[in-house]
């Protein structure tokens, strides 16, 4: 090794920059939120109140909203991205498949704030006039649709727009995975006289770990997404099982409360506690998803 080449190890210092920031953020969020967990205990998670005058801070509405919107977004994104994978990977002719893939990538480059603006003003009005009224009229015996949709900005809209915004991400994960499957499996299936849907069944079962990983990674993104949710959910601090009522998520609540939380005693730790819960869950899901993908790749490549 040349003398000057040893200096190459100096690259390590800036490379660890991101690790340092990750650690600092984790430590910061944990230390600030710690008093909230110690002082309030379980009531932090079960109380629906957020009232600075009485210093009563509960996170239940925000947590419920976060979980519900993420789950809805998964329900939206998974079947669509799976279909896009089959379309791009197999069904469409080559040129068309490339165009389709490019369009999905363009969709991924769009800023989330534009999704939020479109979701909050255009899509929510459309859904309110059509789908929501129908859901309430015919399915109101299901608790999820029991409340009267007052406006289009509610938990369901937030979840749907969130799901739409993640289509490019989930699709590109799945398409990449599909292309990694050795073609002999698929060719064998067709040569045995499989119909397309039978081959797709086979492909889906081969890709099951990847599908789970893509759900985990999408969920990890949905949990912390701020811009889209704040513009579409209606921002009301209520915990309701009804998807047609306006709600709130942890991140949207942080947007509206963060700066005033410095004034009210006890509000900041409670707000940080919500951030910590979301971050830990999100980091965990993202870590597990990545592990699952690399393990799956190991199996596929032998």
């Amino acid at each position: 090794m040349r003398k000057g080449d040893r200096a190459f190890y100096l690259l390590l210092v800036p490379s660890l920059f991101s690790s340092a920031i990750l650690m600092l953020i984790l430590i910061h969020v944990t230390t600030v939120s710690l008093p909230a967990f110690v002082d309030r205990g379980l009531s932090l998670l079960t109380s629906v109140m957020w009232s600075p005058p009485t210093q009563d801070y509960g996170l239940l509405p925000a947590l419920v909203g976060t979980i519900l919107t993420s789950l809805i977004s998964i329900v939206v994104v998974t079947p669509i991205s799976l279909s896009i994978m089959f379309l791009v990977g197999d069904l469409l002719p080559r040129g068309l498949s490339r165009v389709f893939h490019r369009l999905v990538e363009v969709m991924g480059a769009l800023p989330t704030v534009i999704y939020g603006l479109w979701g909050g003003f255009t899509l929510s009005r459309f859904l309110h006039g059509t789908v929501y009224t129908w859901l309430h009229d015919y399915l109101s015996y299901i608790p999820l649709f029991s409340c009267r949709p007052l406006s289009g900005q509610n938990i369901l809209t937030a979840g749907v727009v969130l799901g739409i915004s993640m289509i490019p991400y989930a699709s590109s994960l799945l398409i990449e995975g599909y292309r990694a499957i050795p073609s002999r499996y698929i060719e064998t299936a067709y040569s045995l006289g499989f119909y397309r849907f039978e081959t797709y069944g086979l492909v889906t079962s081969i890709m099951k770990p990847l599908l789970i990983a893509s759900i985990m990674l999408s969920m990890s993104r949905a949990l912390g997404e701020t811009t889209i949710v704040a513009l579409t959910i209606g921002n009301a601090y209520v915990a309701s099982p009804c998807l047609l009522s306006p709600g709130i998520t942890v991140s949207a609540w942080i947007v509206s409360q963060f700066e005033s939380a410095f004034i009210y005693p006890g509000a900041l730790p409670a707000l940080y506690a919500g951030a910590l819960l979301v971050m830990v869950l999100s980091l965990l899901l993202s870590f597990l998803g990545i592990m699952l993908i690399s393990k799956w790749r190991g199996v596929i490549y032998g």
Binding site: L22, I25, S282, S286
Partner: peptide, 9 residues
Amino acid sequence: SFNGIPTII
């Protein structure tokens, strides 16, 4: 894992 940190944080 950085992708798991919400940008609001």
